[in-house]
Simulated scan of single mutants.
Amino acid sequence: MSEKRWIDQGSYDKLQAELKTLTEEKRPEIARKIDEARQDGDLKENGAYHAARDEQSMNETRIAQLEELLRNCEVGEIPEDNGVVSPGMVVEAKVGPRDMKFLLGMREASEDMDLEVYSPQAPLGKAILGAKVGDTVPYTAPTGRKFDVKILSVTPFQG
């Protein structure tokens, strides 16, 4: 079973809308294409049939991803502005030599954002979770490199 991941209401609504479009509009459209292509005869060399089946496979894969995401997310209110790193907060930090600004939340909901998103379950998210403005915490990157992360600011996400 997956851990629950924080997501804001707007992102949740966007993912729900995408799921609805894929299941109620795209799925029947692809089924129609497959049926039309089947009527053309020999399926072995029917390019339209194979293209429609590939499209169906990609659509069903995305539907499964969205269902899993939505099943394993926790829709949260914008957190309190208390300077503590928690899901739903925009964090400005110095990670080693690099200045970064990102949202601690669900990466999958971040397509239209001009802000990087890190999951609280990601190595960086785990390292800074609960830290306060001014804190410096150790972080080991997936590559094995070790960095100090200085929390510069923490503000609630205003999607």
Rank of each mutant, 00 (worst) to 15 (best):
V133L: 02
G88M: 10
G105L: 09
M113L: 12
N82I: 03
F157V: 02
I128K: 01
Q9L: 13
F147G: 04
P28M: 04
L22T: 15
D40G: 05
Q9R: 14
G144H: 10
I34A: 08
D135Q: 02
E55G: 05
D13N: 12
P97L: 04
A52T: 04
D54C: 02
C73R: 15
V90A: 06
L22H: 15
L124G: 00
V137D: 00
S110Y: 12
I63A: 07
E116N: 06
L124S: 00
G41C: 10
E80D: 07
K4V: 10
T140M: 07
G130A: 02
G159S: 12
M100R: 15
S57Y: 14
G144R: 14
K150L: 03
C73N: 13
E18W: 06
R5F: 15
A131E: 02
G76S: 07
K146V: 03
E3W: 11
E29V: 01
E45T: 08
L115D: 03
Q56C: 03
G159V: 07
V154N: 03
T23P: 15
F147Q: 01
A37I: 04
Q158D: 12
L124N: 06
C73I: 03
D35C: 02
A31T: 05
L66G: 07
K146M: 03
E55L: 15
K150F: 00
L115K: 09
E68G: 11
I151S: 10
A64H: 12
L43V: 12
S153D: 06
G134K: 10
I34F: 05
Q39P: 15
Y139M: 02
V75W: 14
P97C: 00
P120C: 01
I128Y: 04
K14R: 15
P87T: 01
L104T: 00
K146W: 01
T140F: 00
L69G: 07
V154P: 00
L104E: 03
L70E: 00
K33L: 08
K146Q: 10
G125A: 08
A31C: 03
A131N: 04
Q16W: 03
R145G: 03
P97N: 08
E108I: 06
V75Q: 15
E25Q: 14
F102Y: 12
Y12K: 12
M58Y: 01
G96A: 01
M106N: 00
T61V: 09
D148G: 11
M100T: 13
F102E: 01
K26N: 08
H50S: 07
S57A: 09
E60Q: 11
A131R: 02
G105F: 10
V149T: 09
D112T: 13
N82G: 05
K150T: 07
I7E: 09
D40Y: 06
Y118N: 07
R98N: 09
V84W: 00
D99P: 02
Y49P: 06
K126A: 10
V90T: 15
E45Q: 07
R62I: 03
E77I: 13
D81A: 13
V137P: 00
K33V: 02
Q121Y: 08
E74M: 10
G41M: 09
N59F: 04
A37D: 04
L43T: 11
